[in-house]
């Protein structure tokens, strides 16, 4: 017999990937997520896709928010997604992309498995609401 007191908390990885040193946005998101009651793991700058995958798999996050402002999303995002699949982690991880993504690329990213792309000017509440509503059932 146990107390059966589940203490679930939404876990997020906020990740900066590739050669892009602009992390203000990632910091703001990390704080907003924290204040929303999420547990946030921040990757730090200049991470390779497999480092992001390692962090996501080991930390067993519900959500990965990848911030990219370098324009290299079409190269980097597929690598992250393939890595997640390799470790059997893709199906129950919500992948979000934030940053400067041209409209014509958004559809491709979603095809790959990105749940949503948040561009500049997105309201913080909107992102948080999206996470709450779409966090994978486990």
């Amino acid at each position: 017999m146990s107390v059966d007191q589940t203490q679930r908390s939404i876990r997020c990885l906020v990740a900066k990937v590739g050669l892009d040193g602009h992390d203000r946005g990632a910091h703001v998101i990390a704080r907003a997520f924290r204040d929303a009651g999420f547990e946030v793991i921040y990757s730090g700058l200049h991470k390779a896709p497999d480092e992001i995958v390692q962090a996501a798999v080991q930390e067993d996050v519900d959500v990965i928010g990848i911030s990219i402002l370098s324009g290299a999303h079409n190269t980097l995002i597929p690598k992250v997604i393939d890595g997640l699949k390799e470790y059997d982690a893709f199906d129950d991880t919500l992948v979000l992309v934030g940053g400067v993504i041209p409209d014509e690329d958004k559809e491709d990213l979603k095809q790959m498995g990105v749940a949503e792309v948040f561009g500049p000017g997105t309201k913080m509440e909107e992102t948080i609401e999206f996470v709450r509503e779409n966090v994978p059932e486990r």
């Binding site: 999420f38 547990e39 921040y42 730090g44």
Partner: peptide
């Protein structure tokens, strides 16, 4: 809020 930034991984 129960929220946290877990920064040791960096």
């Amino acid at each position: 809020t129960g929220g946290a930034v877990l920064g040791d991984r960096i």
